[in-house]
């Protein structure tokens, strides 16, 4: 019986499914060197199985990938030409613009740096409420989307705070946006979601002309060396 209980605990440990109370019992058992040795060994074996399976799967997916052409954006060449022809005009204009912007509030930089978090247009399989909220978001009906998202966003579904905050940014309601992104940072334990929320929080500070909070957050983003580091450095240079 005891052996069966131990086996069940080890299996749960190996599949990352121990509950908090089971974890306590498991930690106590680990004090027994024999038990610990058995667990150590099995953990390595399972890791080895996973690693081998991953390597095989990767080789298979690379085969699929090698037969999948990389589609280029058809507008790329056109856009390049457009940029080249516009470059000379931009250079001249930017000289004058520099003198103009040096006396402007920092929120003037918002439009340059803000890019809406991408909308999802088709959400088959989602609940009706979710469908409606994201549909409204993709249709740029931000006030109505915000009303829907307010009831959807929660610690269990933190991603909706990202959409909600973006709705508020679109509506120019910076303080509401700040609250949404701050909540997201607090409840999210996903590093990617946290990075998105930090960047959008910075943009909310930018929109509401809060240079001190903005600079502190930009320094934090830069120090983390994450996906928004480059943009954060660029923005910091602009407002410093």
């Amino acid at each position: 019986m005891q052996e069966e209980t131990h086996r069940a605990l080890i299996d749960k440990y190996l599949t990352d499914s121990l509950t908090e109370s089971e974890k306590d019992s498991f930690d106590l058992l680990l004090k027994d060197p024999e038990f610990k040795e058995a667990v150590l060994y099995e953990k390595r074996v399972v890791a080895a199985i996973k690693a081998s399976a991953n390597a095989k799967l990767k080789a298979h997916l690379k085969g699929i990938s090698s037969n999948t052409p990389i589609t280029e954006n058809s507008n790329t060449n056109y856009i390049k030409k457009l940029w080249l022809s516009a470059a000379s005009v931009l250079i001249i204009a930017s000289i004058g613009y520099f003198f103009y912007t040096s006396n402007q509030p920092i929120s003037n930089q918002f439009e340059e740096f803000y890019e809406l978090y991408p909308a999802v247009t088709i959400q088959r399989g989602e609940g009706d409420e979710v469908n409606k909220a994201l549909q409204l978001y993709s249709e740029e009906k931000y006030q109505e989307a915000a009303n829907e998202l307010t009831s959807l966003a929660s610690a269990d579904q933190p991603t909706y705070y990202l959409y909600l905050g973006n709705c508020y940014l679109q509506l120019g309601q910076s303080q509401n946006a700040i609250a949404a992104f701050e909540t997201l940072i607090e409840v999210s334990n996903d590093s990617i979601l946290t990075q998105h929320s930090q960047w959008y929080l910075a943009l909310a500070y930018l929109q509401s002309n809060e240079p001190e909070s903005l600079k502190a957050l930009l320094h934090k983003i830069i120090d983390q060396q994450g996906m928004y580091t480059e943009l954060a450095s660029k923005l910091l240079n602009k407002i410093d």
Partner: peptide, 26 residues
Amino acid sequence: DNDSIVLRLKQGDQSCLEDLVVAYKG
């Protein structure tokens, strides 16, 4: 669609990864 991706991965459906390669590689 997003939920079916999660569901298929949970079910160990390897073809989901193949579909993701084709859909999002570019």
